[in-house]
Design a protein around this nucleic acid. Structure first.
Lengths: 233, 233
DNA sequence: TGAATATTTCTTGTCGACAAAATAAATACA
DNA sequence: TGTATTTATTTTGTCGACAAGAAATATTCA
């Protein structure tokens, strides 16, 4: 909430939309702009030191990615998480974990694995540091790197969107609870990476599915773990 | 190329962006704006009788859907079809045919089937009329209706994008060749619809996969069916 | 005559202003 | 005091203008 781009004369022409998009996107994903937050163009214009036009264009872009909801002549707001349809989300997420990991086993290149391993190291550091928020984002970054190694832009784009959504969901919960972060996930990632590297498609897909189902299971536990009001009647 | 929205005083405020988006989107999908066509904001502004601002917002939206390519300070153009990566496209297409059809078998409602049947009737009419262009669009509409009956917005969105891309690809070819349209596809659609209606997930998925593979196979034939220059050397 | 440079023109990105639509606040009435 | 109406304010959609960047054209030079 502090990376304003500065006045016009310090920005390269043509970069306005992207700067605003990048910053707002990150703020939405980090829940600095939580679901349901109103988005006010005039305030953003003041904040970023630019006219409303590039702000609006960035908002169109964010809307296209489902991160904000807009209707004509109405206030824009940060999109809500559709908890009523989590099963759709989980179906799509698990399938994308499987498909992208299998494709990575088939199509990865050496430079891909360098990136994947770097992301895994970051993830392991976050788990070691018991830093839940870092874990959430480094997990997404790792799996996105695997997806990119699979080289199917359609799946990568969908998976990216799902991972982003997952980041928002998880952040809602890890902000409120102090869970021990399971070291097991680091080991699972290592196994997946090894299977990918070995180009073992079937094993990659199987490990990815198990891993994804673990994650879904954990999210589901989070979703139902709302303590019941304990009042004697 | 004729549905301009008229001057400002005949349009409802707030509808500008959508009107331009809808018209340009259709023109891209119908190849009236073929791949690689330049997009000129000033001309569009004159054509639609509105300022460039809503035009640009519509273009941001189209870019987000991969229908146009934009870079800062450069001319926008209609996105090319990436023929070098058709295998990625086919992988995604087949998987989406399977997934959405299976989900339709699981989650469809009576009103969904009414729509699906109406789209199939339109498809059958197009085949009967040997109207290739109508067949291309009604086929996409039918499968999108099936996907919507499956009720997973993530898959539906990806499939919609893939079907749109397929429309552009097929139009490139059917504009140039006069093929007999196979009646077989009508029958296959009927079988798929019956399996969906019967809630037979496994059969639905199998039929969808076979159907998709037929379509892929046909597209592949189109792609390689460029006559070789027949000159004696 | 082809290449390099300068100039002109065109297109894109952004600006601030205007006004329609929505929202909030104030006023009137029962 | 609660409801309906009116007024004021805020926000959004669009406008046309300005200027930076890119492309096209003209000019110069070897």
């Amino acid at each position: 909430m502090d990376n304003e781009s500065g006045p016009r004369n310090e920005r390269k022409r043509g970069s306005g939309v992207k700067v605003v998009y990048d910053i707002l996107r990150d703020e939405i994903l980090h829940l600095e702009l939580p679901p349901g937050s109103p988005i006010d163009e005039v305030q953003l214009s003041e904040r970023f030191g630019m006219s409303r036009t590039p702000i609006r264009e960035a908002l169109v872009r964010l809307a296209g990615e489902g991160l904000i909801d807009t209707l004509p002549n109405r206030s824009t707001m940060v999109s809500q998480i559709d908890f009523l349809n989590m099963h759709s989300y989980f179906d799509a997420l698990v399938l994308m974990y499987r498909v992208t990991t299998q494709l990575a086993a088939q199509y990865h290149r050496p430079e891909d694995l360098l990136i994947v391993r770097a992301r895994q190291a970051e993830f392991a550091d976050a788990v070691e540091a018991q830093d839940a928020l870092a874990m959430i984002s480094t997990n997404a970054a790792l799996h996105l790197a695997i997806a990119e190694a699979g080289r199917n832009p359609y799946f990568t784009a969908l998976f990216s969107r799902l991972l982003n959504e997952g980041r928002r969901i998880l952040r809602l919960y890890y902000q409120s609870y102090e869970d021990r972060l399971p070291r097991r996930f680091v080991d699972e990632h290592d196994e997946i990476i090894a299977a990918v590297e070995a180009r073992d498609s079937a094993l990659s897909e199987r490990l990815a599915r198990e891993h994804a189902e673990q994650i879904v299971s954990q999210v589901q536990k989070l979703l139902v773990r709302e303590g019941r009001l304990d009042i004697r009647l």
